[in-house]
Structure formats: structure tokens, C-alpha cells
């Protein structure tokens, strides 16, 4: 692809600038939906952006004796990871950076924020921030296995490790949400757990206002980390939309190229917003799980469901091939 066009793709649209704007928009919608369900009014449209700008200007407080450089760098690392992950998800047509195995790369990059949270908890020199960080990683061990399995089953069926190919496969066949409903549900629940939202907000929200790995984050570090979480939500939703809901494509080809791009973009919007609606509803309708309950839910139900789904996919593949 032409290097200038590639630069525009990466930096502006549908790359970083669009991603940041969309992340703020997602946060606004999430808060608005939650507020309406809770009989409140909710924030205005630009609230997340205003919060971000305000937080950038706040004082950064350093804990005595902590490794300042590492503490500064860690949120940026997390943000960079999730923003990079976004580039491989098809938003308008194909992703120009697609390659075989980019699904694995995206999944890997999406785990980095949780690792960074653990790192921040460790670096904070605060016993309870450390506990919060350990909580986050423990939770990751529980939900990550079913989440990965659920996201890999589309790859199994489509026969490719590239997200773009999987999306293309869905254009000529059915959506994976229809073919693999169990996987779809597991992926949604896993996504909620990855984003550490209720009912899976054990690491941060029971230490509600100030605690857990987020305790010693202030000022621009906090702004970056929160932005990372927002971007994570966008990337996760886009990923689920791409893998299960057919991404920015519909089964019919539209002839003028520019029209197909616009339609594709519109589809991307609609599908990711649909995923957001489900995630927001789950967040509002439940109370927090205790971590032993999470253990139950994760291993007994989610993991078994995911493994079941993998088996079904393997059987279906075999049946189709031999047919």
C-alpha cells in the first residue's frame, strides 16, 4: 500500500485519531446507557474527553522510593499495545497490515494492559496495590483460557489465523455468531472479564474509589491508563464484531468501492455498538462476584463451554471436509 496512505490509515483514520475519538465516544455511551438503566441522566457527550484533559493537568504524586521511570512508562506501554492491536482489526474493508497470525498478535497485545496493572501494583510500594495487582492477574488466569479458546474457534473453522481472512470467510458463509453461538457467548463474557467490569471488577472496584493497582496512579499516568481501558473496550468489541458478527462486511458485494467502504464503516459502527450494549447491560444488571464465585464461573462454566465449542467446531470441520 502506498506509504502516505498507510500513514494516514495508521495515524488518522481509521487509525489512532479515530480510535481515540471512538474510545471517548464508547465511554460516553457506556456511561449513558448505565445511567439510564439506573434512572439517572448520565454525562454529556464530551464528558470523557473533558475528564481526560482535566486529568492530564493534575499533579503527579510520586511515592517515595519508587521507580519513577518505570512507573511513567508502564501506562504508555499499555496504551501503545492496545492501539497497535487496533490496526489489525478490519474496520473499513481489509486491514492493510494483515498477515497470517495477526489474530494471535492481537490477543497477545490485549493481555498487556492486565500485566501492566500488575506491574503498576508492584511498583507502587503499597502493600494493597500489590494485592490488587495480584488479583488482576489471578482473574486473568481464570477467564483467559475460555476467552482465547472462544476466539480461536472462528479461526479453526475459517482455516486461517488472520482476522481479515476470517471476516472474508464470513462474507460467503454465515456469521460465526450463528454457527458457534456458545463461543459467541463465552467471548462476550470473557470480554467483560478482560475489561474488569462488573461482575468481574474484583481487582479494582471493590477497592472502589482509591485502591488496588490504580491507587498510586495520578495525573497523566491515570489519564493514560484509563484511556488504555477505554481503547481496550473498543478493540475488544471490534474484535468480537469482526470474528463473530462478520466485521465491516455484508454478504452482498457493493459495486462502487467508495460506497462499500462507507457501508462497511457503518456496519462496523452498528456491530461494535451492539456489543457495547450487551456489555453495558451486563455491567448494570449484576452485583460484584466474589473471587471464589469467579473461579466457579470461570472454570466450571466458561472453560467447559469453550472446550465444548472447540470440539463441535472440529467435528463440523471434519464433517464438511469429508462431505
Amino acid at each position: 500500500m502506498d506509504p502516505i496512505l498507510l500513514a494516514v490509515y495508521i495515524l488518522l483514520f481509521p487509525g489512532f485519531l479515530f480510535l481515540l475519538a471512538y474510545a471517548f465516544f464508547f465511554q460516553f455511551l457506556d456511561r449513558k446507557i448505565a445511567a439510564r438503566m439506573q434512572a439517572r441522566v448520565g454525562p454529556p457527550l464530551l464528558q470523557p474527553f473533558a475528564d481526560f484533559v482535566k486529568m492530564l493537568g493534575k499533579e503527579v504524586i510520586d511515592v517515595k522510593g519508587m521507580d519513577r521511570k518505570a512507573f511513567d512508562a508502564a501506562p504508555l506501554l499499555a496504551l501503545a499495545a492496545v492501539m497497535t492491536a487496533f490496526l489489525y482489526v478490519p474496520i473499513v474493508g481489509n486491514s492493510p497490515l494483515a498477515f497470517q497470525g495477526d489474530l494471535i498478535l492481537v490477543l497477545y497485545l490485549l493481555t498487556l494492559p492486565t500485566i501492566v496493572l500488575f506491574l503498576l501494583g508492584w511498583l507502587s510500594r503499597n502493600v494493597f496495590a500489590t494485592i490488587g495487582g495480584v488479583r488482576a492477574v489471578t482473574q486473568m488466569f481464570i477467564y483467559e483460557v475460555p476467552f482465547f479458546l472462544a476466539l480461536l474457534t472462528p479461526a479453526l473453522m475459517a482455516g486461517s489465523w488472520s482476522i481479515t481472512d476470517i471476516v472474508a470467510w464470513q462474507q460467503s458463509h454465515l456469521w460465526f455468531a450463528v454457527l458457534q453461538p456458545i463461543g459467541f457467548v463465552v467471548a462476550l463474557i470473557g470480554l467483560q472479564a478482560k475489561l474488569e467490569r462488573t461482575p468481574f471488577d474484583i481487582p479494582e472496584a471493590e477497592t472502589e474509589i482509591v485502591a488496588g493497582p490504580w491507587t498510586e496512579l495520578t495525573g497523566r499516568r491515570l489519564a493514560m491508563m484509563r484511556l488504555t481501558m477505554d481503547v481496550s473496550m473498543v478493540v475488544g468489541s471490534a474484535l468480537v464484531a469482526a470474528l463473530f458478527l462478520g466485521g465491516p462486511r455484508i454478504p452482498w458485494t457493493i459495486t462502487p468501492d467508495w460506497l462499500s467502504w462507507i457501508v462497511g464503516f457503518g456496519l462496523f459502527f452498528v456491530k461494535t455498538l451492539g456489543v457495547l450494549l450487551v456489555l453495558a447491560s451486563i455491567k448494570v444488571a449484576t452485583g460484584r462476584l466474589r473471587i471464589d464465585q469467579l473461579n466457579d464461573v470461570g472454570w466450571k462454566y466458561l472453560a467447559s463451554a469453550a472446550i465444548l465449542q472447540v470440539l463441535i467446531v472440529l467435528l463440523m470441520n471434519y464433517w464438511w471436509v469429508s462431505a
Binding site: G132, E206, T207, E208, A211, G212, R290, I291
Partner: peptide
């Protein structure tokens, strides 16, 4: 804090 205590509560129950 109170919330950390609540968190500690969850840890304990786990």
C-alpha cells in the same frame, strides 16, 4: 481503606 478492607474480604472468602 474501608474499600481495601472490603477487598480483603473478597480475598478472604476466596
Amino acid at each position: 481503606t474501608w474499600d481495601e478492607l472490603s477487598a480483603h474480604g473478597r480475598e478472604f472468602y476466596r
